[in-house]
Design a protein around this nucleic acid. Structure first.
Lengths: 245, 245
DNA sequence: GCACGCAATTGATCAGGATCAACAACCGTA
DNA sequence: TACGGTTGTTGATCCTGATCAATTGCGTGC
């Protein structure tokens, strides 16, 4: 264990590093060897947790780091020319955000905590240096960026081709799958975001989102209580999402 | 001038290299020094031009290279689970495509020539090696990937928030700007894609696209004759696009 | 415990764009 | 130059989801 990053750690989680982090299998270290993880760990900074509503960075700010979510949940959004908010993504533990800032050296979106959230900060210049030293790291980072492109294109397809029901079903399945990846229940989870955020992300109004939730519940696909969702009939939900037919 | 890439060139354009390519200021070489461009040029392969309708690569094929458009125009698209086509982008000279394949080692979309098109192929493994040797190249490539993410997110916003008129106006302005970047007229250009492709890309039907074209013409914003478009009132078109108010 | 404010639900109506359908223009071919 | 096929245009109608509006539910502070 190195001492350098220590100064950035809060006392209560000073023991955390990439090596013992239970997210390492799905997060940045995923493709790295033990000794490479140690080098990554050297540059990772772990600050105090973000409170709900606090921003990690804001659109237009100078880009200097990418971030990994350790706990909690983050909402990414940008503001359109006419002042409306566009939610661009939801980020859960093990997921990386901030990469949209690389191209223009400024963040293209804002990132706000939807819950108390612990975050790992990876200064980008040091990440670049490391990528030159470790081709594995470079490759992995290329992959990360490329995967975000593919995901965005999937989302474009969702918005362009799918109905309100298909969109919401897809989001629920996506969140369910991401929970499962972290060894959490694929059937029962709490949505950290508001109905408004969901609608915004899916290109729908609050009212439509609410109606579709009610319809899903009435059909016995899910049961909803406020932000808590239980997927009752996963297969049926998959059929509704239309992703496989 | 090196000899290595020569063998890949057609006789009629064997003189082409990154150094004398008139697109170098907007294409990959953009951020590189003279000697670095030479190294890039060493790995670039220039094959025979693609005929209209031919594919550069297809969704699901093993990923091995990214491509730069030298002339013509390319359409990127993927096929949804229920067999529908989703156009994910249009690529003009100086633009790079294929980066969606990095993440999964397979292309996530297909690329098809909309016109006779000359293409530069950049084998990715050699590009990675070069990126390790030339941090400038690595940085530039990170930027490219990041910019594609930002563009996709802009497109998500367009689909999620904007009307049919706003979407088409935005596309016309985007194409106009990309022509201008290549020192071509920002006012007069030929659309290489069909109305169907435009609609597909913008999340609209053929009929709506056609109607909006007619409406724009009637309002004196543009004049349209088949695939040839002349922007008559650029400012008014900007106002319609809503990107700035 | 109660009141306040915000988030979510539900209902009624409206509208933008989809769908269905007919027709026109264009293109390559013979 | 005539033909058939494809692509694009225009019109009529329909439907999904937006908008407007009222109400309920929930969490928070007093």
């Amino acid at each position: 264990m190195k001492t350098a990053p220590m100064q950035h750690n809060c006392p209560h989680d000073s023991a955390i590093n990439c090596n013992n982090c239970r997210l390492s299998s799905i997060c940045l270290p995923l493709a790295l060897r033990q000794d490479e993880i140690a080098q990554l760990d050297d540059i990772v900074q772990r600050g105090r947790p973000l409170q709900k509503g606090q921003h990690l960075y804001r659109e237009g700010e100078e880009f200097h780091a990418i971030y990994a979510v350790r706990s909690g949940a983050i909402k990414g959004y940008s503001v359109t020319d006419d002042g409306e908010e566009q939610v661009t993504g939801f980020y859960f533990p093990g997921e990386i955000l901030g990469m949209d800032g690389i191209g223009q050296n400024r963040y293209a979106s804002s990132a706000q905590a939807m819950d108390v959230s612990a975050i790992c900060e990876i200064p980008f210049s040091r990440m670049e240096e490391l990528s030159v030293k470790l081709p594995t790291m470079q490759k992995h980072f290329f992959k990360l960026l490329s995967q975000e492109i593919v995901e965005d294109q999937r989302h474009i397809t969702l918005l362009s081709k799918n109905s309100a029901e298909e969109r919401l079903a897809s989001l629920l399945l996506s969140i369910s799958a991401r929970h499962a990846r972290r060894q959490l229940s694929a059937h029962s989870f709490r949505l950290p975001m508001s109905r408004g955020d969901i609608g915004n992300f899916l290109g729908l109004t609050i009212e439509t989102v609410s109606r579709v939730f009610s319809r899903f519940a009435k059909q016995g696909l899910i049961s909803v209580s406020n932000k808590d969702v239980t997927v009752v009939d996963l297969e049926a939900l998959r059929r509704v999402a239309n992703l496989g037919e």
